[in-house]
Nucleic acid binder design. Structure first.
Lengths: 228, 228
DNA sequence: CGCACTCTTGAGCGTTCTCAAGTGGAGTGG
DNA sequence: CCACTCCACTTGAGAACGCTCAAGAGTGCG
């Protein structure tokens, strides 16, 4: 598979919506000796669907996505990745999803053979890897509920609240969304127009403001009310 | 979380649609000493959402489902479980989904503390647990694509092909579906009426026959064509 | 300034949903 | 054994939500 494993949960004021265990990266630190740093430019692939899962990756900077195409071109985005997140650990033989850079990214790449070998010798690393897989699984299950049973408006709001934990810029209020509307639509199982319209509708309700460079959340309580 | 971990992949003539690694249950065998056998009747809960994940379970016989309710009653079924499948292993602290018996079931129950303790000492068990988590993750990702980007007709057909691997009766052709239409609808993110209508439509096309006790697949090639 | 691209807006359509009624077994009690 | 009830499933009609197609607005870049 191609999703990701969230390695570090940043200590935000708002707790992240996916309730992940408090993981730190320390148990992975001694893998550093096997790592190499890679740069992937905006829009380019990190790894492809169907390719052997020879490496796993840690996102150092930028934003990435995991995607899968259907035969006729329909696309599903499974996850967005943020600095500190791990990619490619959830595929056994070959990658199920592809991974692509949403913005210019820097990554650290580790051979899977080294990871597996170390995991065999260090129970704490094995436990960490399992915890990461389970944290990913929980997020996948949350996405299943979102896609299976939430309305378009609820999906957009859920997305905004999720992004609120990740995409906040240093200068306060404005939430910068590095991904395109198309990415958001394919992540939420909607059309790009539906995403647009609901954002505009929320803006008219005074809940948010759409800016040139991002979105400003004006009434988080109202957003949380919508997702109930 | 509350989904399941598929322990054994039965050697069917048709390969199962989710490409899981070839797992056998042997590495879990020495947990048997900690297990106890439990019977859960049709419709009753095995464990509830939000409850501490104190046990994990192996389904010995019958069929089970993992479900989650939204505040207003909307329901999502995450998975159906079959004999040999493991439940409850994918939750860290508390169960995210609930698990319920679709039919009368027999289960084997293991304390998580014992599982964790053994996993710490036996790297092969730790690896097995991780493989199970990753197999579950892959199936969750397949469900995400189904829910995000497939049409109602495609979802119903995907479901039928999945069930074809599990629910086959000994007496040949008839596929017995132990779960209700409501379960199927909540699994596929559809309304019960939409599931019905598409089944009838497929029957009219001569692809299947709806029987009192189940469904007979008449043209599997046509079904596979639909999911492309 | 013009081109390319993303995002927004509009109109109309279609799939799916909701609400409602009807059907048919399975089980129960007379 | 036959009514009666209950429940799951099916079928129908109409509405609603989200999609498609199309055009327009805004932005960045050469």
């Amino acid at each position: 598979m191609s999703t990701t494993m969230r390695a570090i949960q940043p200590a935000n004021s708002l707790p992240p919506r996916p309730e992940t265990p408090g993981l730190t990266a320390d148990a992975l630190d001694f893998l550093e000796q096997f790592g190499s740093t890679v740069r992937v430019r905006q829009g380019h692939k990190i790894y492809g669907a169907g390719e052997p899962a020879a490496f796993c990756w840690k996102l150092l900077s930028g934003c990435a996505r995991t995607v899968k195409f259907m035969a006729d071109g329909r696309r599903q985005v499974a996850e967005f990745l943020w600095p500190g997140d791990l990619l490619g650990l959830d595929d056994v033989g070959t990658h199920y999803f592809a991974a692509e850079a949403v913005t210019d990214t820097m990554l650290r790449r580790y051979p899977r053979s080294a990871v597996e070998a170390q995991a065999n010798r260090h129970p704490d690393l094995a436990l960490r890897l399992r915890s990461l897989a389970l944290a990913n699984l929980r997020r996948a299950h949350q996405q299943i509920i979102l896609l299976g049973r939430e309305t378009a408006k609820e999906r957009v709001v859920s997305f905004l609240l999720d992004m609120d934990d990740h995409a906040v810029t240093a200068e306060g209020r404005l939430m910068v969304l590095p991904m395109s509307r198309t990415d958001i639509a394919d992540y939420l199982g909607l059309s790009i127009e539906t995403v647009c319209r609901h954002l505009v509708r929320l803006q008219r309700e005074g809940i948010l403001a759409i800016r040139r460079t991002g979105i400003e959340l004006l009434d988080r309580a109202a957003l949380r009310e919508i997702t109930s």
